[in-house]
C-alpha cells in the first residue's frame, strides 16, 4: 500500500512533466495541424540549458529559468521560419521528414555543445520531504504539478479568452477565412510554434532536477508526450494534460510492479494500442475526406 502510494507520487510528478510536453504538442496541433517530431529535443534543450545557466554559470534561479525559456521560444521561432515555412511542399510526409531531420540535427548539436555525459541539477528547493501514508513526497513534486497546472491554465486562458488566442484557433480551423477576416495566419503559426517549444523548454526545466539529463533524452520524451496527447485526444488541451498524468502513473506503477526495464515500452505499447484501436475515433473530425 505504502509502496503503491510512493509509485503514485512519483508517477504524478513525471506525469505532470509529460503533461507539459503533451500540452505543447497538442496546442501546436490545434493551431497549425502539424505534429512536431522535434518537440522532444526542445525538452532536452530546456534541461541542458538549465545545466548551463544555473549549474555552470551560476545565474540566479529565476534568471536561469528566464534564459532557458527565452532560448526555447527563440529556437522555435527560428525553426518555424526557416524549416517549416520555407517548405516547398508542406504535405504531412514531407513535414514528418523535415521535423525528424530537425530532431536529429538538434540532438547532434546538443551532443557537440554539452558532450555525451549526463548531468544532474540539484533540486530547486531543499525543504524536508513530507510524509503521507508513510510515503515520501518531495516538495519539488508539489510545485512541479502546480506549475504544470498553472501553465496549462494559462494556455487555456490565452486560447479561449484573449483575442490573439482566439485568432490563432480560428486560423487553424480555416486559414483562408481567417486570412480574409484580417488574421495573419503566418504570424499565428510563428506564435504557436514559440509557445509550443516554450512548453517543451518548461518541461525540460522541470525534468532537470528529477532525472539525469543528457543530449539523447529528447526523442523518447517527445514520443511519450505524443502518446499522452493521443490518450487525451489530439488537440484537446486538458485531454493532453490528463493523458500525461495517466501515462506517468501507469509507467511508474509498471516499472515498480513489473519490471523497470520495460518502463519505456509501456508508453509505446499504449501509443500503438490507441493508434490501432481508435485510429479514427480520437480525431474523427479529421476523418471525413472531401472529394
Amino acid at each position: 500500500m505504502q509502496e503503491i502510494i510512493q509509485y503514485l507520487f512519483s508517477g504524478i510528478t513525471t506525469g505532470a512533466i509529460y503533461a507539459v510536453i503533451a500540452v505543447g504538442l497538442s496546442m501546436l496541433y490545434s493551431s497549425t495541424e502539424l505534429i512536431n517530431f522535434a518537440h522532444g529535443e526542445f525538452v532536452m534543450i530546456g534541461a541542458m540549458s538549465m545545466v548551463t545557466f544555473w549549474v555552470h554559470m551560476a545565474l540566479p534561479l529565476p534568471v536561469a529559468i528566464g534564459c532557458t525559456l527565452a532560448l526555447g521560444c527563440a529556437l522555435g521561432l527560428l525553426f518555424e521560419r526557416f524549416a517549416i515555412r520555407t517548405a516547398r511542399n508542406p504535405q504531412p510526409i514531407v513535414l514528418v521528414i523535415i521535423t525528424v531531420g530537425a530532431s536529429i540535427f538538434l540532438r547532434g548539436t546538443g551532443m557537440i555543445v554539452w558532450g555525451k555525459d549526463p548531468f544532474s541539477v540539484p533540486p530547486f528547493s531543499n525543504h524536508e520531504s513530507l510524509e503521507i501514508f508513510g510515503a515520501a513526497l518531495l516538495p519539488q513534486s508539489i510545485w512541479i504539478v502546480a506549475a504544470a497546472l498553472l501553465l496549462a491554465g494559462g494556455i487555456h486562458f490565452f486560447l479561449k479568452r484573449t483575442l490573439t488566442g482566439k485568432a490563432m484557433v480560428a486560423s487553424a480551423v480555416n486559414q483562408k477565412a481567417a486570412w480574409l477576416s484580417g488574421i495573419p495566419p503566418e504570424r499565428m503559426a510563428v506564435l504557436a510554434f514559440a509557445i509550443s517549444t516554450g512548453c517543451g523548454a518548461v518541461a525540460g526545466i522541470f525534468i532537470a532536477p528529477v532525472t539525469m539529463s543528457s543530449y539523447d533524452m529528447g526523442t523518447i520524451l517527445g514520443l511519450k508526450g505524443f502518446c499522452a496527447a493521443m490518450i487525451g485526444g489530439l488537440g484537446s488541451l486538458w485531454g493532453a494534460f490528463a493523458g500525461g498524468i495517466l501515462l506517468g502513473v501507469l509507467e511508474s506503477l509498471g516499472a515498480g510492479l513489473i519490471s523497470s526495464g520495460l518502463k519505456d515500452a509501456i508508453a509505446f505499447i499504449l501509443l500503438l494500442l490507441i493508434l490501432y484501436v481508435r485510429p479514427g475515433g480520437l480525431f474523427s473530425a479529421k476523418e471525413a475526406k472531401r472529394f
Partner: peptide
C-alpha cells in the same frame, strides 16, 4: 492497422513500433 493511418500518425506508429522492438 497502422497503414490505415496517414501522415503523422503513421510516422508516430512506426516510430513507436521500432522503439518497442529495440527495447525487446
Amino acid at each position: 492497422p497502422t497503414l490505415r493511418l496517414s501522415g503523422y500518425y503513421l510516422g508516430m506508429g512506426t516510430l513507436g513500433f521500432g522503439m518497442i522492438v529495440n527495447i525487446l
